[in-house]
């Protein structure tokens, strides 16, 4: 087995444990999937446990598909298929994020062999806790997209007409921006953040903490030659209520990011930029 030398220590350790589990997993075994279910907003939650058969390559998605085709609990009670959000199934769309064995991640890339290698093992699935539940494992992450508007996460181009090429960019800058730009708005960083709390009231969204993903996007666009035209507006947004001052520096965000985006570095960069802007505003009086 080759080792993943390009991974940071926390991810390499997780990969090592997963590989060890995978090595001893036996195909055809039965394991339990324990799901925290909820029929809709305001309804009580309940646990339901299902027994599933695991094959090589089985992941949480294929287990939920198995349950959907035959929705009977482990104790033989008929129920309804579990509802969950999913899309690409290859960890580039961000849709299928949930809390698995207490840790937030995408369910498509969660192989059962890595998590439940022995006969009779249990794997638990819960919806993300920082967003309102729609039903079962499906949560409403509109606030996450709303926060991208707060930081004007776009390049202000002069329309879609042909106006020649964009600015040139060094390979180093491209590599740095590319990593930041792989953020798929999954919300793992927000689930893990002690400062980001559930907020069902939309009118409070503009003054509650934006979170690491939006701060990272602000940095991404501030570092683009044309994108930086809105830098002052982005920083002003991040200086106001719910901005970067709400970050408690717990640094959980970077540890759970599936794309290994240097979120704490982005928070540091934006933090310094905000300080400089605040000082400049103080002296200019504007």
């Amino acid at each position: 087995m080759t080792t993943a030398t390009h991974l940071p220590p926390h991810a390499a350790e997780a990969a090592r444990i997963a590989a060890a589990n995978r090595a001893r997993a036996v195909p055809g075994r039965k394991v339990y999937v324990k799901v925290l279910r909820c029929d809709g907003p305001g309804k009580p939650s309940r646990w339901e446990t299902f027994q599933v058969t695991v094959e090589r390559g089985s992941n949480v998605i294929s287990m939920l598909q198995q349950i959907a085709a035959s929705p009977v609990t482990a104790d033989g009670r008929k129920t309804t298929p579990v509802v969950w959000d999913s899309g690409c199934l290859e960890e580039v769309c961000g849709a299928c994020t949930m809390v698995i064995n207490g840790k937030v991640r995408q369910s498509c890339s969660c192989l059962i062999d890595d998590y439940a290698p022995a006969e009779g093992d249990t794997i638990t699935l819960e919806p993300m806790s920082k967003f309102p539940v729609v039903r079962d494992l499906w949560v409403d992450r509109s606030r996450l997209f709303h926060n991208l508007k707060r930081v004007k996460a776009w390049v202000p181009i002069d329309g879609t007409y042909s106006l020649g090429s964009g600015p040139t960019e060094s390979p180093e800058s491209q590599e740095q921006r590319y990593v930041m730009s792989t953020c798929m708005s999954c919300g793992c960083c927000l689930e893990a953040c002690p400062q980001f709390n559930i907020e069902p009231d939309q009118s409070a969204w503009d003054t509650s903490f934006v979170g690491a993903h939006a701060i990272n996007q602000a940095r991404l666009f501030n570092e683009h030659e044309t994108g930086k035209r809105l830098k002052a507006e982005r920083l002003d947004a991040l200086m106001s209520a719910g901005g970067i001052n709400d970050c408690g520096n717990a640094q959980n965000c970077a540890k759970v990011c599936p794309k290994l985006i240097p979120l704490t570095e982005s928070i540091g960069v934006i933090g310094r930029a905000v300080t400089i802007r605040a000082v400049a505003k103080f002296f200019s009086g504007r």
């Binding site: 776009w154 390049v155 181009i157 879609t160 042909s162 106006l163 020649g164 090429s165 964009g166 040139t168 960019e169 060094s170 390979p171 800058s173 491209q174 921006r177 590319y178 730009s181 666009f221 683009h224 044309t226 994108g227």
Partner: peptide, 21 residues
């Protein structure tokens, strides 16, 4: 080619050569 230019202006991080093209 016009479409590539437009995407470039929108900030797509296209891989770059040493010269930045």
């Amino acid at each position: 080619p016009k479409i590539i230019d437009l995407l470039d202006r929108m900030g797509v991080p296209f891989n770059r050569t040493a010269e930045g093209k």
